[in-house]
Amino acid sequence: MEQAELEALVLAHYEEIYAYCWRHLGQRELAQDLTQTAFLRFWQHRDRYTHDGRELNYLYTIAGNLCKDWFKRKKPVAIDDLPESQRDPAVPPPDRDTALTVRAALAALPFEQRNTVLLYYDRGFTAPEIAAITHTTVPTVRYRLLRATRRLRELLKEELP
């Protein structure tokens, strides 16, 4: 992969990977850092990548692993604790209270379930695509979606009127 190809890849997919990281982390600068790190790792390990047209899946895998590693090292910061300058202005919630409640419910899910929910509902990947990204099986993806949606219903039932 030539540098021009990498630049085209970054231009084509930066916003998607950034949005994915931001939804996991809720912090603009951290999401930007991990997005850049994902592309850097892709570039550094391009010899391992087979050019089969799935570079976006590979980028999601790298970004998901970076987010997971960050959660292992750091305790997440509540969105209310962030100054306005760190909230992503590109994602204005239609109803702030509802958005914060849903965000808190998502944060309460285990990483694997949250990751699956974000890839499926937010990014629009299919179960087989998520299985490839997360290196699991389609039944595992479906199970995680089922468990996550049940848990989200429970959490949101308690919080939303």
Rank of each mutant, 00 (worst) to 15 (best):
L25T: 05
P89D: 01
D47I: 03
E84Q: 09
P92C: 03
V10M: 10
L82G: 05
S85L: 08
A132P: 10
L66Y: 01
K74L: 02
L118Y: 11
H45F: 02
L59G: 15
W70H: 11
A8C: 11
E2A: 02
A105V: 00
N65E: 07
T37W: 09
L152E: 08
R96E: 07
T137I: 14
L66S: 05
C67V: 09
L155V: 08
D97I: 01
L30F: 00
I17V: 15
A131H: 13
K72Y: 00
I133C: 12
L25I: 10
L59F: 13
A78T: 04
T50L: 15
L118T: 11
P94Y: 03
A99N: 02
A63P: 05
R96D: 04
R123M: 15
V10A: 11
A12E: 15
G64L: 06
V141H: 08
D69C: 00
Y18S: 10
A12M: 10
T140W: 07
T37K: 14
T140E: 13
L25D: 08
P76S: 07
A4E: 15
A108I: 00
K157R: 03
R150C: 09
R114I: 01
E7A: 10
R151G: 02
R151Y: 01
R114F: 00
Y120S: 15
A127I: 12
N57H: 15
D122M: 11
T98V: 06
A8L: 12
R150A: 09
Y18W: 08
R114P: 03
C21S: 11
A148D: 07
D95G: 03
L152F: 07
L118Q: 13
S85G: 02
A99D: 05
L106K: 07
R144I: 06
R103F: 01
K72N: 02
W70C: 07
N115D: 11
V102N: 00
G26A: 05
Y60F: 15
E2Q: 06
L59D: 13
A131I: 13
P89Q: 02
E16Y: 11
V117W: 03
E2T: 03
E7Y: 06
V10K: 09
D33M: 03
L100Q: 01
R142W: 09
N115K: 02
G53V: 14
R41H: 08
G64D: 07
Q32M: 13
D122S: 14
F42C: 11
A148N: 06
A107R: 11
I17H: 09
K75G: 02
E2M: 04
